[in-house]
Design a binder for these strands. Structure first.
Lengths: 148, 148
DNA sequence: CAATGATAGTTAGCGTGCTAATAATAACTG
DNA sequence: CAGTTATTATTAGCACGCTAACTATCATTG
């Protein structure tokens, strides 16, 4: 059997390569990959609970917790306890968390453009469309029916 | 700016979701994701040096080293020192390393079919083609010219 | 209102990826 | 052939993803 000719194998290779590539580029603005995925969500809406962030990003809560600890250390976000629910916390962007957005967008556009330069206009559209389908496939799977 | 509408962001989401999905499926045959990528390469050709495996798979040598240590522990491969070069080692599949192949192929076909069931015949071909382009983009970048 | 169950965050521990730094050996060069 | 350079494997240490297990709190229900 030729594993190399499967979409799954291709996806795996592309996945790690893409992540490694992003990591290198983000180093220029002092960010890590995981931090960026959280920032994307916080830039959309501030002051949410960790569990809500995690669900939206599609990561496990311990993963988000660890990433947030790192972000608090470098001063990108603050963690505030809720008054009406002592279990939960709200995550707020600091001034630095807001300020870094411009630089990140620059890098992001560069990365996107460099990657897309390999493709024609039509291919870009199709690639986006097909990847969206793959994403929906994974995030559409009901977690309760995932296991056996 | 809408990060969600970039291919890079889509790729990131799909990347982690796909890897997590693979990991769950592979648990059924007692394998981890990294081990599988090494197995793919060893099934193609046995008895290669770690550095050659790493280059072919597209991983850093310390990463491959760690994965191999785990595989030796569970008895999938053996590590042999070269006689004519005391620095290098050769990695050989054990009987178990060969034997597991059938079960892995079954799982692999399942995963592939389930994912592809979302797509038409034409879309599958295009998806494979576009992902191949992305892979070539990342692995075609000359490491010497990567930096600034 | 006491007991039970659900929820939020955290800790511990593992596998996978990286870079930087070491040690040992091979290869090359003056 | 002595000294430098290059190569191979390894170690240490970090980020990121997961599950399992724990604590604290809230909600529900007897």
């Amino acid at each position: 059997m030729k594993f190399e000719e499967t979409v799954s194998h291709l996806l795996s290779r592309v996945a790690t390569a893409h992540k490694a590539h992003l990591e290198k580029r983000l180093a220029g603005v002092g960010l890590h990959g995981g931090q960026l995925s959280v920032l994307f969500e916080l830039w959309r809406r501030d002051g949410r609970r960790q569990v809500d962030l995690a669900r939206e990003i599609g990561l496990a809560t311990p993963t988000v917790n660890k990433i947030l600890n790192g972000m608090i250390e470098v001063g990108l976000v603050d963690r505030t306890r809720l008054e009406d629910d002592a279990r939960a916390t709200r995550i707020y962007l600091t001034d630095e968390g807001h300020a870094i957005r411009g630089r990140v967008e620059e890098v992001w556009l560069e990365v996107e453009e460099e990657l897309l330069s390999e493709f024609t206009e039509t291919e870009r559209y199709i690639l986006f469309d097909l990847l969206t389908k793959v994403r929906n496939y994974y995030f559409g799977i009901d977690p309760d029916q995932t296991g056996e």
